[in-house]
Structures are given as structure tokens and as C-alpha cells.
């Protein structure tokens, strides 16, 4: 992790810095076309989440005579057990997955960063209390807890799902942010800020936080992928409510209902959501790669 220069100074200077930053971003993206592909993939999925359900009727059409139909022009990924187009299911199912991922990422990073910054900056009793809380959170076994929770909570909304996954995932971020803070608070610019008598709030929000922005941004993206795997896994295990266009439910029905691992008939039904998850993860990984270079001057120089 390296530091960026704290954003301070007159407005025109900040505007110049911002312009330079975006120019740097464009340069980094151009250097490897795969990074542009990553942005395109993620944009595609965001678009699917935003407008995908609007492209199809509320109840997807079915073909009673084409159950588990093979891929064709009309059905690029075949059809499901009910004769519904698998591509339509993947597209309309993207919203739940993406929203859950984003909600999880926001909660994970917001909680982890806030607690990590507070603990690292204040040290002493704050640190002890918050880190014991973090330790406690880290010891909670996520999957068994989710299995138990699913018996009383139906997780109908992606935000509910994201909230639970987020509350189960902030511990790692908090620990890492605390370590960063402990290191940064000994640096000269923080000492200077303290010497100038700036408020704690100012130091944390305007001095420490921007220095950690790249790390936090990358964690947001990594948390999104983690949330996608977690929720799809839970739906795959069948512990969360049925929704025919949920990617995890599709995987479950393809394997256990369609026998996709034993025969080829339901294979496209299995592969379509898998491919979607793989593409989305790939897109995020490529963007993280770009971000690493954008925020890491040493890499930029190479």
C-alpha cells in the first residue's frame, strides 16, 4: 500500500489534480485492453441489473414443448425445466445478485473502515474494545449462522441479504484498516495536522481516509465478488427461498432437478449462471488490477 498526496489546496489546484488523476486512469486503462474489457463487463452487468427485468414481461414466457431445450438462436443457452429461456433468467436474475453484492460491499467496507480507523487512530481502550468486537465477529462461523438464520428469515429482498452478508464480513476489513491507520498516524503529515490543532474528525476524514481510499475501493470490489459467491452458494444449497431466475437457484435446479452433472440435457442451464458469475468476477478482477496500478505510483512508473 502506498500513499497518495492528501487532497488539499486552492480549488483550481484540486481541479488540476483531479484532471491529472483521470488522465492517469485513462492511461492505465489503455495500457492493457483487458482492463477495458473488465470495465465493459462490469458495465454490462450493471446495465443488466438496471434494465434487464424491463426487457422481459413480468412472468417470463414458457414453451411447454421445449423443456431443457438445447441451445439455439431463439434460446442461446437453451431452456429450463419449464421451457423458459435460460438467458432471460440470467438477465432478469442479475438485479438481485448485483444489488446484494453492492449492499454487502457498502456495509462491509463502511463498517470495517469506520471501526478500523477509530481503533487505529485512538488506540488504547478504543482499540482494545473495537478489536475484541472485531475478533468476536471474525470467530462467528458465517455459513452455519446463515443456515440457521434462513430458517427464520426468508431474505426476500437483496438488501436484507446484503445486510446479513455485510454484517458477517466487516471483520477482515476492520483489522486491515486498523493496521494501515496505526502506520499512517506516525507519519509526518499526520503529526503536522495534529500539531496544527486540527480536529480528530478532520484528521480522520480528510487526512487518513483519502490515503486509504485505494485500499478501500479495492475492498469494495472484492467484497462484491465475495457476496456473489456467498449468496449464490446459499441459494444453491437450497436454504434460501425459491426464485426461478436466481442464479444459485438455477444452479441447484440444474444439478439436482435436471441432472446436469450426469447428463448433458441440463448442462446449458447449469453453465449459463456459472458463466455469468465467472464473467462478473473476471470483470471485477480486471478492474482491481487497473486500480492497483492507478493508486500505486511504483507500478505506474514501471
Amino acid at each position: 500500500m502506498t500513499l497518495t498526496t492528501p487532497l488539499a489546496g486552492p480549488p483550481n489546484m484540486r481541479a488540476t489534480l483531479r484532471r491529472n488523476f483521470w488522465r492517469g486512469v485513462a492511461r492505465v486503462m489503455r495500457r492493457k485492453p483487458s482492463r477495458m474489457a473488465g470495465v465493459a463487463i462490469v458495465c454490462l452487468f450493471l446495465l443488466m441489473a438496471a434494465v434487464g427485468p424491463m426487457l422481459y414481461p413480468a412472468h417470463l414466457p414458457r414453451d411447454d414443448n421445449a423443456l431443457y431445450a438445447a441451445p439455439s438462436l431463439a434460446h442461446p443457452f437453451g431452456t429450463d425445466f419449464e421451457g423458459t429461456d435460460v438467458l432471460a433468467l440470467v438477465v432478469t436474475g442479475a438485479r438481485y445478485v448485483i444489488l446484494t453484492g453492492l449492499a454487502t460491499a457498502v456495509i462491509t467496507v463502511a463498517l470495517g473502515t469506520a471501526l478500523g480507523l477509530l481503533a487505529g487512530f485512538h488506540r488504547g481502550r478504543w482499540d482494545t474494545a473495537l478489536m475484541r468486537l472485531t475478533d468476536l465477529q471474525l470467530t462467528i462461523p458465517g455459513l452455519p449462522l446463515l443456515l440457521v438464520l434462513s430458517t427464520v428469515w426468508k431474505f426476500n429482498s437483496p438488501l436484507e441479504m446484503g445486510l446479513v452478508l455485510g454484517l458477517l464480513g466487516w471483520g477482515g476489513v476492520a483489522r486491515a484498516v486498523r493496521s494501515q491507520t496505526l502506520s499512517l498516524r506516525e507519519r509526518g503529515f499526520i503529526e503536522a495536522a495534529k500539531g496544527l490543532g486540527l480536529s480528530t474528525r478532520h484528521i480522520i476524514a480528510r487526512e487518513l481516509l483519502p490515503s486509504m481510499a485505494p485500499y478501500i475501493a479495492m475492498n469494495v470490489l472484492i467484497a462484491v465478488t465475495g457476496a456473489i459467491y456467498a449468496q449464490v452458494g446459499l441459494f444453491f444449497l437450497g436454504v434460501l427461498p425459491f426464485d426461478s431466475n436466481n442464479w444459485g437457484v438455477m444452479l441447484n435446479l440444474a444439478v439436482f432437478g435436471g441432472g446436469a452433472l450426469t447428463s448433458t440435457a441440463a448442462l446449458p442451464y447449469l453453465l449459463a449462471p456459472l458463466l455469468a458469475i465467472l464473467l462478473l468476477t473476471l470483470g471485477i478482477v480486471l478492474i482491481v488490477d487497473a486500480m492497483d496500478e492507478i493508486f500505486n505510483p511504483r507500478l505506474r512508473e514501471e
Binding site: E82, G238, L240, F242, S244, N252, L253, G257
Partner: peptide
């Protein structure tokens, strides 16, 4: 339906 009964899930759907 119980989630683990794949035939019931498909039937209910």
C-alpha cells in the same frame, strides 16, 4: 414447498 424436494419445487413453479 420444502426446498430440498426438487420435484415439488418444479411442480409448484
Amino acid at each position: 414447498v420444502p426446498a430440498s424436494f426438487s420435484d415439488w419445487v418444479a411442480a409448484a413453479k
